[in-house]
Structure formats: structure tokens, C-alpha cells
Computed example of a mutant assay.
Amino acid sequence: MIVPVDSAAPEPEILARAAEVLRRGGLVAFPTETVYGLGAHAMDPAAVAGIYAAKGRPGYNPLIVHTADAEGARALAAAWPQAAARLAEAFWPGPLTLVVPKRAGVPDAVTAGLPSVALRVPAHPVAHALLRTAGLPVAAPSANRSTEVSPTTARHVERGLGDRVDLILDGGPCPVGIESTVVSLVSAVPTLLRPGSVSVDELRRVVGEVALPAAEPGGEAARPSPGMMDRHYAPRAPLRMLPRDGRAEALRRAAEAGGRVGALLLAPVDDARLGPVIRMPADPAGYAARLYAALHEMDEAGVDAILVDPVPDGGAWAGIRDRLRRAVTG
């Protein structure tokens, strides 16, 4: 069930209803500044199992736990390094997740059996108010079927999960549009596990050295962070990146091959055989906010293939490049 909620001043009675669903072990989808999350009581293993069942999510993929403030996050950590304190002060509430050693009592179901836990304090007014009202930590991955495109509207959640969710809070489109940056603090040097809207340059300005991840685990090995599966954020139709050189020829060949070919393009194209064509914003923040909604539109249009212009190489585009890389077919 979708319930509209004022994104600037969430209604207390709606929040109280959603908080009660969480307390009794149910699932609530709610907006964050990044994407819509599928929330459950993080300290209730049965409730957390409901997230995995609803999403069809593999058990080796850990969840992010959301709290109302940094104090709530620290209460779930066995250690809180100085780097964590600095990053939390600089970026929380906001689209940054910190991976730290977990405190005893944090369910293995949340962390995929790992000795660490991923923590975030979201900035969206609805998410923040819900966490305050519920008074408990909420495990919340993106509110979609596993590996599919993340939702940035309540309707995306409804189409993807349907009646698997007890309550969907509709707070409008998510302003950031891609998942949070994830940084591991379990070793001496902070390590970037997943790029997002908080860039590695911004992180380095706060804590100095930030390492880039080594090769990601394959198969069914537990991931140190969500969002590290090879195929993720993927639309139903095969997605292909256009070459930087020979773009026009690649578009022409795709149009001539037949079928309905959609495209997400940074530059215009004059070929009536392509469609739908979505002109994407040229700035990274605008592109990120539009990306998942555009992919959902392609799914709804029933295209046979999706072509995407390559995005720039700058650090601010790293999160977008990561999402597109994992969505590519083949």
C-alpha cells in the first residue's frame, strides 16, 4: 500500500503507523536522499530475513543499517576509529555509509556473517523522521528485486515488489538518485568499497589517504559491502555502452538491426528509428538523479535494447560509471 507523506514535514500519524509496522517485524519502503529503501527492524533476525525473501537477495550480500544519528550508529559498532568520527561529522546526515567492526548483538543476518556492519545516517526528512519515531535501527537495502534497477519513486517500488511490502511511504523522487558511497574503516587505511555522490577526493580532504578496493569477491563469497555484485542495477533489456569513437556508426547499426532500441544520450542524435531516446543531463549530479528513473522508463516502454553514451572520466562521475558498468549485459 502506498501512503503519500509530506517530504518536507512528514505527518506524525503516518510516521507512527510506519514505525509500528517496523516494530512488529514488518517491511516499510521509504525514501532516502539516495534511493527508496526496504526497511526492517535491524535487530530482529526474522524481520531482516523478510528483506532477503522480498528482494530475492542472496544471503552473502550484507545490508546497510540506518540510524537517526551518529550516536545510534556508534552504538552498533565495536570500534569507532577517528576516521569514522571525522567522516560522520563531515558527511552525516548524508549519502555516505561507513563499514566498521560490529558490536555483539548485531544479527549475522544483517552483516552476511561478517564481523563488520555498514552504517548510515540518511538526510532525507522522511527517513530521518521515521528513524526518530521508530526509535530503532533499520536495515534497508534498495527497495527492488535483487540485481534490478533501484527505485527512486514509490511507484518504482510498487511495480518491483508489489504486495511483498507492508507499507510504502511516498515522499516523492529521491534527489541524489544513486546509492551511497561506502567506505570501509576496518583496517588502518580507509578503503572505498562503492563510489557514490561523495567522491574519493572529498573523502581524502577529510581523512587523508583513501585506498581503492582490490579485486572484488566472486561467486558466493560474502561481500564487505552492498552493491558489489558483478551484475547489479540492471534493466530488463540488455544494456550496452556506446564507443567513444565511432558512436554514430554504432547507433546506425543498432537502428538497422531491428527491434525497439532505446538510448540514454549525452549528445543529440538524428535517427527516427531509435526510440525512446532520453537526453541525459551533462552534469554528474543531474545525471545521477535521472539515471534510474530513465532506466525504469525504458523497462516500461518494453525496449529490446538500451544504448548508453559513455560518461566522462572525472572523479565526480565515478559512482555513475560504477552503476553503468554493473548494468551492462555481457
Rank of each mutant, 00 (worst) to 15 (best):
A327N: 02
L130Q: 02
K102Y: 01
G208E: 10
H296I: 13
K102F: 12
D230S: 11
G314P: 04
A29H: 02
L251W: 07
R279D: 14
D304P: 07
P175G: 13
A73K: 03
L63V: 05
G94V: 08
A285N: 06
P141D: 06
S225P: 13
V206M: 06
G208K: 14
R194D: 13
A248C: 13
L242D: 01
A288G: 06
T191M: 10
L266T: 02
G59H: 09
L22I: 10
S116A: 13
L266F: 09
P122T: 03
P122Q: 06
V277P: 08
A79I: 05
R252C: 11
D245M: 10
A85H: 14
V165L: 07
V3C: 15
I51F: 04
R205A: 15
P268C: 09
R321W: 03
E216Y: 12
L87D: 07
G314C: 08
V182Q: 06
L264S: 04
P284R: 02
L27D: 04
G275H: 02
A215R: 14
G171M: 10
A282V: 12
E209Y: 14
S146I: 05
A123C: 04
R252M: 11
G72E: 07
A214E: 13
E249A: 15
P141N: 00
A257Y: 12
R321I: 04
A285S: 13
R194A: 08
P81I: 02
R24A: 07
D69C: 10
G219M: 08
T147N: 05
R240E: 14
A237R: 01
R236C: 12
L161G: 03
D201Y: 08
S116T: 14
G105K: 13
A215C: 12
Q82K: 15
E300C: 06
A19H: 00
V200A: 14
N144V: 09
A305T: 09
R24P: 02
A255T: 04
D245P: 03
T133D: 08
A214Y: 09
A222Y: 04
F91H: 00
G330N: 13
A188Q: 12
P137I: 00
